[in-house]
Simulated scan of single mutants.
Amino acid sequence: MTRHLAIVPAYNEAGAIAATINDIRDHSDFDVVVVDDGSTDQTAAIAAAEGVPVLRHPFNLGIGGAVQSGYQYALANGYDVALQVDGDGQHDARHIMELLAHLRDTPGLNMVTGSRFLEHADGGYRSSASRRLGIRVFASILSRITRRKVTDPTSGFRMVDARGIELFARDYPHDYPEVEAVLLLHFHKLEGAELPVRMRSRQTGVSSINAHRSIYYMIKVTLAILVGLLRARPVVEKGDPAAVTAEHSI
């Protein structure tokens, strides 16, 4: 029997974390772990009161560090499938079992991402116009590099198999993880795909990337992609989770 885990990174999401946990429970058979990334509110206490494990960072590491902690937990506890679900309520848990079926039924697939921008995604929240412009730029760059269609490279609604868990537990981007993780998967010769999903606007709080910072964000992420093309990464040897060797990206 395969074991499934939902990783919920959360930073000051006290207003949404309980609803997020229960949304996952209502629509899937996934276990849940919350990674409290140095919150200063009651996020960790509320999550613990819902009866789920909570990994607490003593200070804020950022989304990449929080997600990697979740993958390390998944690897250490023998999970076969891991899903990322944002703690702010944007990701609709009704799509979880669709993602799982696609991952399970597609030979050779290691990661499936929920995309807001596939033609049959049927609307839903798609972020601001300035951020959509940046997403299109990143999607175009990554589609050329990976030689497959990428439409939503900033989506944090992602599911991976055991090989993806092994890879991301040991090497996960910290600065701009959603975009760079697509590259990481590609350079380790793992396969990714997208599935249309609807997303909601965040239930509480505000995004750290506002309209004034969108251009700055675009430039930094583009530079991060270029640097990502050059940096060396560990290679997880198939069949031996403990065996890691160094390999250059290009």
Rank of each mutant, 00 (worst) to 15 (best):
T151L: 11
H186P: 04
L184I: 01
A193C: 05
Y176H: 15
L226R: 13
R131V: 11
S130F: 10
S127H: 10
F138W: 15
R132K: 12
S208I: 12
A193M: 10
I165L: 09
G205W: 06
G228P: 11
R163D: 05
F157S: 04
T151Q: 11
L230F: 13
D171C: 13
N110F: 10
N110H: 07
I225D: 14
F168V: 01
R136D: 12
E98K: 07
P177A: 06
L185E: 07
G156W: 01
S214Q: 14
P153G: 12
L195W: 03
M218W: 10
A162D: 10
I141Y: 07
H188R: 15
E180V: 11
E191K: 04
P107V: 09
I96F: 02
K189G: 08
Y172R: 12
A162L: 04
L190V: 11
R200K: 08
Y176S: 14
M218D: 11
N210R: 12
V137R: 10
S155K: 13
M111R: 13
S201I: 13
H95C: 03
R170Y: 11
E178T: 11
H212R: 13
S115A: 12
Y217G: 00
H120A: 00
P107W: 05
S214M: 10
R213Q: 15
R126W: 00
G156T: 05
L183G: 11
Y125C: 01
G124Q: 05
G114L: 04
A129W: 01
E98L: 05
F187V: 13
V227A: 14
L195P: 01
F187L: 08
R131W: 14
G114R: 00
M218S: 05
R158T: 13
I215A: 13
L167Q: 06
D105Y: 01
H102V: 08
H120R: 00
A211S: 14
M111P: 00
G228L: 09
I141T: 14
I96Y: 03
A169T: 03
L229V: 06
Y176F: 15
R202L: 02
P173F: 09
Y216V: 01
I219F: 12
I145P: 10
V160F: 13
K149W: 09
T154Y: 06
A224N: 15
N210V: 04
L230D: 11
S115G: 04
L142C: 05
E98T: 11
